[in-house]
Design a protein around this nucleic acid. Structure first.
Lengths: 248, 248
DNA sequence: AGCTCACTGCTGATGGCATAAACAGTTTAG
DNA sequence: CTAAACTGTTTATGCCATCAGCAGTGAGCT
């Protein structure tokens, strides 16, 4: 059973990559296809933007073209691959960091801001990329390459640069998660109910009670992206300062 | 429709909280209940530990008790609430940070290590807590309180301490995500296939090509938790140093 | 002792999902 | 002009959460 699954997945990776990198042989015989993987992905993106990723079912996507769900399977091996195409579609243009200045820090900051912009425009991207990715398309690699290029002047080892990249991606994904969680009305309800509970159990949660009283959970004074990025990059700078003299 | 959903959710929050905080009136009449919410949650946790969160269906959980799926609805309002109980079950004991030493940094580090331990023991926790949380149980608040307590000696504002807390939680959740993504066999397959692609497109991804050549994607030399935590907390230390003189 | 009714657990149905299988219609290469 | 290749369809399978309604149970009251 595990064996069958593994084998099927291996086949899927190849199919996925061919699809993502546009290395498909388009057939000549038979009726003209009315769709393309690209158009399907675009429509799915529009649907996800409007109603969330959970609204993206094969049926609904097919419905936007007036065809049956099964018609999509002529263009896309399955839903997982469709989601991968959606990710690629949304990362379409490679981020240009040259306007940000010359240092590694302004460039990586710019990369983070652009990345954050994509997550804000397409909140479903978080859930989409959380599904176990087996294949990366060219646009995903574009973004990865841009971030790694920004980190080259740090003088850190390749492994360290990769780790830093993961930290920054992680920060952005966490903010995206917080963005998803946030709902004005629900937030007030949460504060009200949790406030009641804290009143009744102040002795059990002393630090939390003090934090709430001090307004720690009110509207954030500082932009969370700026705050998080400043902390992480300050930490990276400390690492550079520490390694630099010893290594050079 | 949105209105109905909202109203239903509001009712659910109250029900959830009552369940999570054990503020249920247990009835006297009728047949003795054969189950409890707690036992159901424990069984669901065991199932999720063994087969993942997606294997936790009402049917399967009920099956472990030899009852029908609908029987569970006598104890738990729905699946969302069951998942919340699972989270509470897994955060059962409040983290004791006193052994870690006296500074904010060793304490927060200890908190992070314990938190990471929970995510390692229960990889499904990531997905479970990613679902929009509407209510927090006492154990979740215990953990929050412990982290905020550790941060009090920093001298940062309450809002800043909250932000730092979110950064640390985020780090751990990202590592948990990376743990989920990782699969030895699949990783090798990925490296092989992506390597092929990079050979063919080295000019498009120069920094990535160099990074791969330098072994950035090989087995990590340093523990990612230590690396990430050191970076973030170094950054926090920088903030403390910067604010301290001006504020004091 | 017996009645009532809250409470338990059950069966069966609904509507959603991805996708497998088999089939009918269309176009082009030989 | 035929056969192969290709497109889109209908139908069906097996999951899933959850609603509605039914039968049995047993504590508390009369």
């Amino acid at each position: 059973m595990a064996r069958t699954t593994k084998a099927k997945e291996a086949r899927d990776v190849r199919a996925s990559l061919a699809l993502l990198w546009g290395e498909q042989d388009r057939p000549t015989r038979g009726p003209k296809p009315s769709l393309t993987p690209h158009r399907i992905a675009e429509s799915a993106v529009a649907l996800a933007d409007a109603e969330g990723l959970e609204a993206v079912s094969m049926n609904k996507v097919a419905g936007t073209f007036g065809v049956s769900a099964m018609a999509l399977y002529r263009y896309v091996p399955g839903k997982a691959e469709l989601v991968e195409l959606m990710i690629e579609a949304v990362l379409a243009e490679r981020p240009d960091l040259s306007a940000a200045g010359d240092g590694w820090r302004p460039r990586l900051t710019e990369w983070a801001r652009r990345s954050w912009g994509v997550y804000q425009a397409h909140p479903w991207l978080l859930a989409a990329t959380a599904m176990r990715r087996q294949a990366m398309g060219p646009h995903q690699l574009d973004w990865l390459d841009a971030a790694l290029a920004a980190l080259e002047p740090t003088g850190l080892t390749a492994a360290q640069r990769h780790q830093v990249f993961l930290l920054v991606v992680g920060l952005i994904r966490n903010l995206a998660q917080q963005l998803l969680d946030f709902d004005e009305e629900q937030d007030q309800e949460w504060n009200r109910l949790t406030g009641e509970l804290l009143d009744r159990h102040a002795d059990r949660f002393p630090a939390l009670t003090r934090a709430v009283a001090a307004g720690a959970f009110g509207p954030a004074a500082e932009d969370p992206l700026t705050f998080g990025l400043d902390r992480i990059l300050d930490g990276v700078q400390t690492l550079i300062d520490r390694e630099g003299p010893g290594a050079g």
